[in-house]
Design a binder for these strands. Sequence first.
DNA 1: TTTTAAAGATGATTAATATCATTTTTTAAA
DNA 2: TTTAAAAAATGATATTAATCATCTTTAAAA
Lengths: 218, 218
Amino acid sequence: MNCGARSSSLLGSFCDHSLEEVNSMKTCAYYKKNQPLFVEGSLQRGVYCLNQGKVKVFTRGDEGKEQIIHIAKEGEIIGFRAMFSGEPYKVSATTLEESNICFIAKEDFLNMIDTNPALRNGIMQELSKELGDRAVFITNMAQKSVRERLAFSLLILGDIYGAEEINLTREDLANFVGTATETLIRLLKDFKDEEMIEIHTRKIEIINKQKLLHLAGK
Amino acid sequence: MNCGARSSSLLGSFCDHSLEEVNSMKTCAYYKKNQPLFVEGSLQRGVYCLNQGKVKVFTRGDEGKEQIIHIAKEGEIIGFRAMFSGEPYKVSATTLEESNICFIAKEDFLNMIDTNPALRNGIMQELSKELGDRAVFITNMAQKSVRERLAFSLLILGDIYGAEEINLTREDLANFVGTATETLIRLLKDFKDEEMIEIHTRKIEIINKQKLLHLAGK
DNA sequence: TTTTAAAGATGATTAATATCATTTTTTAAA
DNA sequence: TTTAAAAAATGATATTAATCATCTTTAAAA
């Protein structure tokens, strides 16, 4: 078996077995941990469908420090944003763990969109939603303290990792929150002392979601 | 005369006189300064076409402080992002100066998109581009100092205001940069002392773009 | 299993920026 | 034109978070 990912979203169904049309044009592959799918500045050849695993989507600041914009999980399509802009990638994507990922060539993908209005609407909806999410993200970055942002980030990661424990290096977590690694480590200890999380070496378990929600200002 | 705005973009042509189809379904109106077009959380009824003037697009953080995401100028369509997401507005839009703005009802706009592939592609391109821009914006917010962000912001505003001088309250400018008003005022003075800008009461003139570019880290 | 490298943690210090209080200037209204 | 209100500016102080240096633990490789 290769492509077993499901999602309730319009877009998610795209990668589904049921679409024979898709099945015939995609090539699936195994990716190991820390393997790049594509790199900022390069030209796009197609889109990636994440069947199994996690992928970080990030940009690099002037000093090369990563800012993680999004962490994709099973069922997500990665890299379709650059498909319509006509520009090179503005972000990079790299696996965070062993993953199973299918690739669909640009022309095949665009062709499908032209002939499939439901898919097209799903894409437009997704683009719009993300645009709204990023406006909120920007506001959080600009106005919240690092402590509040960490609470907020842990909640997002909690949703992404679901039943599993959050499993990221301290550096990746810092690059998601937008802070220095040392600051992040200190705050994680505070959160542990305040009994919001438990730390199992590098894995993080949320034990008081309510308290995190309150801290994040929701 | 009412609608005189032009733009070289695919989308810009939408508001153009030449599209008789558009002309017949839009209603133009005069907006005075600080008049809202729509407010975060409300449901969308259509899109706005800015013929003359400036509009700020912003979200509010938990303490009610505005974070300006974008400043729209002549020729831009405002609020079409929420059109496809099916969600209420995640941002608010308010005029920054006297403006002339046309409104096109949601059903008319969606209908046009269904029947006009070029327009549709223009929209998808615009959505994708902005998504990329916002990834960069997030990274700037997370990694750059306020000083660097001010330089960056002034350059963006320089492009928006073109031949005119930048004309915003200190508070709006602070809310665009993502800082406290007092901090912004102090930094503006520094920039003046370092001969990067000139300040004419509330208007700001860029006199050394090169230096600003260097500071912004480009 | 031992060795090495990477990741995580901690302490001390500095720098940046927010906050609060107050004053001055500008703009708009009476 | 005077008055009131809003915007801009300034000073003092507190706080947050970055930076640099070092040490410990964990994971991976020889």
